[in-house]
Design a protein around this nucleic acid. Structure first.
Length: 289
DNA sequence: ACCCGTGTTCGCTG
DNA sequence: TCAGCGAACACGGG
């Protein structure tokens, strides 16, 4: 489910359901070892039971949860124990099919990998059929120490998008521009859909070499990225509570529209699908140069 | 049965 | 040494 706007939706879901709440009980799926590694699945429950969620941040596609530790059972008896525990961090990446759901007495969905029972009666589930997602404990909530967070480039929504920096990043690689946009160290949060959408908005052929774009083309791409994210994020504020539903109308301009007419006014081209870096790319060969 | 998939990582190659 | 490429991961849906 993941790309910057969907992860932002997940951040808001977690804030609505869980912010300020204390975790009473945690259940994890022992078969979903890869989601929790390098820790064992059970470590998450041991660390978070009794803890209170203090903040939810998003950096690119990473969700960063900060918990205040709770009183440990029997804690009073070990007054000479180790130094008081600091904050507990959890880095959540949704992979391809991860999703945060829940509510008051929410039933476990089919693929709950971790479930959290809260002090207000609500239950929150982390759902992930394919298990490409991650749920990692971060001691001290020191997220900068995580390599996958440290390697992230600027977040085009949270940090703003600097066209000059984007141009410098693109100039450093010979890869096709659409492939370069998927590199999270260039910009954090761009995924397969929005990379294609931004190229379409910039009227740029996604196969163009990244280091051969002119400054005006880079500027157009920056505008395209801002616009496609603004478009997707606006849906989160709209009357619709749910994000893009299964079977709903395709809200995109080229993505998933093979064989259909280009939506640029008066273009008249037909959207084509091709494969780049093993991922589908959609473009209008007529107006994207 | 077969192909596809809003993502990342790892190992090989030139 | 390293950018770039392709396989691998895992499972449901069309």
């Amino acid at each position: 489910v993941p790309e910057l706007p969907e992860v932002e939706f997940a951040a808001r879901t977690l804030r609505r359901l869980m912010l300020g709440r204390r975790v009473l009980r945690v259940e994890t799926d022992a078969r979903a070892r890869r989601i929790f590694r390098p820790d064992a699945p059970g470590a998450l429950g041991r660390a978070l039971t009794g803890a209170r969620l203090q903040r939810v941040d998003r950096r690119g596609k990473q969700l960063l949860l900060t918990f205040a530790p709770g009183a440990r059972p029997g804690g009073a008896a070990r007054r000479a124990g180790p130094a008081p525990a600091g904050a507990i961090g959890v880095a959540s990446h949704l992979g391809m099919t991860g999703k945060w759901t829940g509510g008051p007495g929410a039933p476990a969905t089919g693929w709950a990998r971790a479930s959290f029972w809260l002090d207000d009666g609500a239950v929150v589930h982390y759902d992930d059929p394919r298990m490409f997602g991650r749920l990692r404990l971060v001691p001290g909530a020191d997220f900068a120490a995580l390599p996958e967070v440290a390697a992230l480039g600027p977040d085009p929504v949270a940090d703003g998008l600097d066209a000059r920096a984007l141009g410098e990043g693109l100039a450093a690689t010979r890869r096709p521009v659409k492939v370069a946009l998927l590199d999270q160290s260039l910009l954090a949060g761009v995924g397969n859909i929005h990379a294609a959408e931004a190229c379409w908005r910039a009227r740029l052929d996604p196969r163009r070499r990244a280091d051969r774009l002119s400054p005006p083309e880079v500027a157009a791409l920056a505008r395209g990225l801002r616009a496609t994210f603004r478009f997707a994020l606006a849906k989160l504020d709209g009357p619709e509570i749910e994000y893009i539903e299964e079977g709903g109308d395709n809200p995109f301009h080229v993505y998933g529209r093979e064989g259909l007419r280009c939506r640029h006014l008066g273009c008249g081209g037909v959207v084509r699908r091709l494969v780049q870096a093993q991922r589908s790319t959609y473009l209008c060969p007529r107006c994207q140069r």
